[in-house]
Design a protein around this nucleic acid. Structure first.
Lengths: 229, 229
DNA sequence: GTGTGGTGTCAGGACGGCGTTAAGACGATC
DNA sequence: GATCGTCTTAACGCCGTCCTGACACCACAC
């Protein structure tokens, strides 16, 4: 049985996380602030740590540095969308991965399993590459390369590509993508997606009219298939 | 040790069931009427419920609805042959499966084991696989594989397959499926199901004319049998 | 054997989703 | 205020999906 330390000050989110984790058979501990997080990390030796960046007392960065001083336990960042700068700082400070609030529970659990499986922290997830090596997406530097040469994307194009890169092989519905890129009040504007998918394919696919990486699933959504299948 | 609640007014049948269940190592409770059934279900939290439809006080349907209001414990209907209409009603109300009186004890025990297997939350992996490994249904990425190669399904086909994957070994009535896929106002359009089941079998079964996974239960509904039996 | 109700299969037409293009609206920069 | 790139919106043709109806088939009852 693995022990998960949940560092989260919002009581509702914390409860939801703890309930879900315990239902899946994890031993889940809770720290509502940074001080108690460091304390529990030292005394309970969790197998993985879920860390919210917005804490009341000390910054999430301080917590990461405090733990990395003596332990290489995997740390998953949970952060709001607008905190993207501190997310990168957190990754640089030694965090392993991050999910953006509001997050899908199954996605979080998948990343958690991945972190546990790895055991030893590595930044391998930072660059997503297709099986054929033609396309590279660097999530940390926000850069995309096709056959080695950098491609410039517009902000909206990048946000879309980022969604795909963070969810390889997974079917993303139109509403899901619209929420993630344009905001929660969008959902019916599927024509946006049609236009931008077209542009992205022109830039990143070998043959824009026969997409291999950004595949349409008719009536369901889109899927990024770096594996090639 | 699993707890089984037997709801049965006929004393002879009840005794036979209780003796057989206890001999197999189950903890077996007995409720001779609907009122005590609801009472025991609430206080003892059984792992599975065997429910006779012909009760002296309240109808079996009332019992199902009373339990389904707060619990998802598997419910197996035990009913006489001529009560086929109420059997379908019971399935629509949320029962999981049924056996017809007079029943073979080993068949009942087999269905009971299937219900227990389903009830225990071992769905840590969101991938449902058939016993022979030919068919994989990945609920997280919404992808279906036959012998390793991905198969593309239309939205309606996927919704149906998803229902089956989420309820393996369970008998799903036509109305239940129609409600889940087309919406609550549908219920008589069983021809839809016939067309789509045919398409799904063509795509996913080894021999579309001899289905092994998506089995028809004549007059009752359909059952997904990943175990192969 | 014959009848009946439920089921499986096929094909065609209506419909809506999708990809593409282009033009107008908007905002940033100088 | 002018220019440039980006985002939004509209229009159109294409293609797959959904629904429908017809027919064959099967199990079961008589």
């Amino acid at each position: 049985m693995s022990t998960v330390l949940v560092v989260e000050d919002d009581a509702n989110i914390a409860r939801a996380l703890l309930v879900n984790l315990r239902a899946r058979g994890y031993r889940a501990l809770h720290a509502p602030d940074g001080t108690r997080a460091l304390d529990l990390a030292a005394h309970e030796h969790p197998d993985v740590i879920l860390l919210d960046l917005g804490l009341p007392d000390v910054s999430g960065l301080t917590v990461i540095r405090g733990i990395r001083g003596w332990s290489r336990v995997p740390i998953l960042i949970v952060s709001a969308r607008q905190e993207s700068a501190s997310k990168i700082e957190a990754l640089d400070a030694g965090a392993d991965d991050y999910v953006t609030k509001p997050f899908a529970m199954d996605e979080l659990l998948a990343r958690l399993r991945a972190a546990l499986r790895r055991g030893t922290p590595e930044q391998a997830e930072a660059i997503v590459t297709t099986a054929d090596g033609r396309l590279e997406i660097d999530l940390a530097t926000k850069r995309v390369r096709v056959e080695g040469t950098p491609i410039s994307l517009t902000p909206t194009e990048w946000l879309l590509v980022e969604q795909f890169a963070r969810n390889p092989e997974r079917l993303l519905s139109q509403t899901e993508l619209l929420h993630a890129v344009w905001g929660p009040e969008y959902g019916r504007e599927t024509n946006y997606l049609r236009v931008y998918l077209s542009q992205i394919r022109q830039k990143l696919e070998a043959d824009g009219s026969r997409p291999r990486y950004f595949v349409t699933e008719l009536g369901m959504g889109y899927r990024f298939t770096p594996s090639g299948g």
